[in-house]
Design a protein around this nucleic acid. Sequence first.
DNA 1: TTTTAACACGAAAACGTTTTCGCTAGGCAA
DNA 2: TTGCCTAGCGAAAACGTTTTCGTGTTAAAA
Lengths: 350, 350
Amino acid sequence: MKKKITLKQIARELDVSISTVSKALRNSIEISEDTREKVQAFAKLYNYRPNNIALSLKNRKTKTIGVIIPEIVHHFFSKVIRGIELVANKRGYNVIVGLSNESFDKEVINMQMLANGSIDGFILSISKETLQYQDYHHFIETISQGMPIVMFDRVVNEINCDKVIIDDLKGSKNAVDKLLNNGCKHVAIITTKDYVSVGRLRTQGYLQALEEHKMIADSHLILKVDDELLSEDHLDSLEVEIEELFKKNKKIDGVFAVNELYAIIAMKVARKLGLKIPDDIQFIGFTDGVLSKHATPSLTTVSQHGQEMGEKAADLLINKLENEDEDEDEDEHYETFVIETNLIERESTK
Amino acid sequence: MKKKITLKQIARELDVSISTVSKALRNSIEISEDTREKVQAFAKLYNYRPNNIALSLKNRKTKTIGVIIPEIVHHFFSKVIRGIELVANKRGYNVIVGLSNESFDKEVINMQMLANGSIDGFILSISKETLQYQDYHHFIETISQGMPIVMFDRVVNEINCDKVIIDDLKGSKNAVDKLLNNGCKHVAIITTKDYVSVGRLRTQGYLQALEEHKMIADSHLILKVDDELLSEDHLDSLEVEIEELFKKNKKIDGVFAVNELYAIIAMKVARKLGLKIPDDIQFIGFTDGVLSKHATPSLTTVSQHGQEMGEKAADLLINKLENEDEDEDEDEHYETFVIETNLIERESTK
DNA sequence: TTTTAACACGAAAACGTTTTCGCTAGGCAA
DNA sequence: TTGCCTAGCGAAAACGTTTTCGTGTTAAAA
């Protein structure tokens, strides 16, 4: 087992100084061709690579970005990570991942673990618990220590930083527009509690679409699901709730769901009740997922472009990191980048 | 913007030496109670945290583990990551993620980026291209430099290291057993090319099950899919291939697929051809995915227990890391841990 | 022959820690 | 008074780099 070789060892072997070795490897003109070749040959032979940690310490840059997401077993978030990793790698950065698991405490702990020198900046999406508590001190503290943050998807106005979001309101408005234009007269929405900003915005989009079509929103057609936990029993009870919704409102001929799973389950319930999709009832979900594409019937969705969000977030962060040096004028100016959504029409709509 | 504070700054402010500050913070008895309290109060006020990079350099340990997987937008792999992250965090480690994207080159590059001091050890699943090339020099090199590796799922006998796998052969044998016991007389398999070890093993399980039931394998019922890329067109052509399979072999009354997507698509094709599931034809997939549960009909699957694999892999790695110091007797001894699979019966089988 | 300039290299600082060792001052015993 | 011990603290090394600033040698110019 040969441990990794260091500059010092090379220097000792070749009987030169550490500085000479370092310079030789970086092709400094200070070093004679002889020595340079000798050193480089030796380094190649022993497969020398500079120690990253030492470099990080010296440069006060780790070339690593920290990503904190609420959940990784989730198509949208894993697509975002893929996007982040793609551009991070292309630009010479590594990605270190922390999962908050929708918990405020884990989010804080994770940020503290990483903020002590391990990374140069954060990309994150806020946990539901944090959104509920509305306690953002850990973000503020991190930013005030000079560590840039880019938020995506689940963002919050109170924090001043770069953001990458989709236009939830417009996306859902378009979706509901589509249903209404397709002839639906009674469109229901299956959404989350309001503290989840994306759920709230998507509900607003639903309401706006109705309004523009001169229709009156019926509160009975708005189902706000409490998704504290997406556990098995929760899914079952969700199914029951939806079934009640359908039974009590037999006129429903269109459903907009703020995520993929809700839509899929709603379709399942509809089929159970003998409804034909899309003839009797049409469905649109909000998502980026794999279920929609392979369900039967396949689900029309508002695409979230997770990978694109990740790429954009990473670019924003790295730009900020690389401009820090020059840009010492501190005219902090933050961008909110909106990714366009689009409707992917499949079999669940006419 | 107050930059992170260091020992040196605290020392200067309080007019003591760096060593005194360090000791005071670690509650050394060398330091008088007076000074200790003074330093700790000051540190708390300025929210001092030791710089991780400096610690890593000093201790020659990063408390970070590198994970390299072929793909992250994949239910199984994201579950594994969740498992890894769970125990890593619990044991005080961070997780840094690299994606090989099924490419040999990216796998090598990623490993090199991380192996230069950034991490203490690897957890990885081998990319398809690497399996095809059978070039494992980067693993060997890494291990010979004293950096432990734990492989999971896609492993390879040539490399001597800890491994976490499922019993692919047994799992698929059980699945096919189930189909045969359920009365299927002509069971087809949809699998991958043989260089993917898990595909090969699952095919073997299929064959063994047939054999034990005194049935002769029919090569026409074995569909080996070339999944170079899981692109859109690939899926379409897969659908065509499966349709041909069914049309040419009308007797097929059971299908075992080595992953979830193949099974779902096969079910779709079967339905298109007017077959009733599970009355005319039964399906079992091999997977850990979300599709199976929410498809209609829901798919009976062999569960892979991704999260458990991740947890086990992380435990194995960290154990090795923490025992390195004491265990200098170098009696390298590697474990291969087999996670039990089990059959989750749903609507696609009788 | 002396001065100058280029060339080739080394010493040392710095990044932020922890830790070993040594030093000083004061207290106590002889 | 002398010697010794201990409490309390500081200096310095080490981790592995990069980089600045010497410094000595040699060859060319004066």
